[in-house]
């Protein structure tokens, strides 16, 4: 009996195995080629440039050296860059998570009738370029901006609050830019969360805080991990919003790469910093996969 039933899939398997890889390769190849030519090769080239010795004025030599890295790690300014970037990355990610989590949870629970519309509203900021949104924040948060104007004319404050050209401005702008990405990732990772688990926990004696801590949070952990990874990477690599809202006074790895590559024309230095950023991303990815495994 068992032999008869099991013989069927065995007989079918070779046929499907012959047909399957061809289609699989045909579908995967275009993107694999693009990825190789436009990402893998440049990254290898970037790594090579980071070891090239340069003379003043950004002239590249044919000599390879570890000096670019040595310079970076011995300079207190670059250590400040790393800590600034990491603080921004962690801080922005945490605040974005706190802002987006209730939205995602609400969207997950709202009746399907409203869900699509509310979902579109949540991600609609993505329709406007983050450059334009950053300029919008400059208009709102500037010394003569809408926000300070309201506070001053209503007599709450006498002099404008410093909300731009500093780290606070960068935080505000970055969080707003990243909320849709965080919300999208969270919702994508909420698949396992069902109302019935909360009901089961309640029937076993868990109050609402315990239900959140012991049931909702662990079940949404994959979404949290994905959203945090994405926002961390985006906030560390973001360049336009810190540049504009930081007013040149907030120094980060991303802005330094730009300065070194475009203004100072020190490509090897820029490449070395880029490689360090890549390593930070690699570490973030490792943490992410551990978290996902842990909560699977």
């Amino acid at each position: 009996m068992a032999a008869i039933t099991s013989s069927v899939p065995i007989a079918e398997a070779p046929a499907s195995r012959r047909k399957f890889p061809f289609l699989l390769i045909a579908l995967l190849l275009p993107m694999a080629i693009i990825n190789f030519v436009a990402f893998v090769l440049p990254v290898i080239r970037l790594g090579m440039i980071s070891f090239i010795e340069s003379r003043s004025g950004g002239v590249l030599t044919n000599n390879y050296t570890l000096e670019n890295y040595a310079d970076f790690f011995t300079d207190s300014f670059s250590i400040e860059l790393v800590s600034n970037s990491l603080l921004l990355g962690f801080g922005v990610t945490l605040i974005t998570l706190c802002c987006a989590y209730p939205i995602a949870l609400f969207l997950h629970r709202v009746s399907p009738k409203w869900r699509n519309m509310l979902f579109v509203i949540t991600v609609s900021p993505l329709l406007v370029s983050s450059v334009v949104r950053t300029y919008g924040w400059m208009v709102i948060l500037g010394d003569q901006g809408v926000f300070n104007g309201i506070l001053m004319s209503s007599g709450i404050i006498d002099s404008p609050l410093r909300l731009t050209n500093n780290t606070l401005g960068v935080f505000i702008g970055m969080v707003e830019v990243l909320i849709p990405y965080m919300a999208l990732s969270l919702i994508a990772g909420f698949g396992r969360l069902e109302n019935v688990y909360e009901e089961a926990a309640a029937s076993l004696g868990a109050n609402s805080w315990t239900r959140f801590r012991r049931v909702i949070l662990p079940l949404t952990a994959p979404g949290i991990a994905l959203g945090c990874l994405l926002c961390f990477v985006l906030s560390i690599s973001s360049f336009i919003t810190p540049k504009l809202l930081g007013g040149g006074r907030v120094f980060l790895l991303a802005t330094e790469i730009y300065d070194q590559a475009v203004i100072q024309l020190e490509w090897p230095t820029a490449a070395a910093i880029s490689v360090i950023v890549l390593i930070i991303f690699g570490l973030a990815l490792a943490v992410y996969s551990r978290v996902v495994k842990r909560f699977d």
Partner: peptide, 10 residues
């Protein structure tokens, strides 16, 4: 006891 058991998957 729920129809689909509702065992905490994590």
């Amino acid at each position: 006891v729920f129809q689909n058991y509702a065992l905490f998957p994590h």
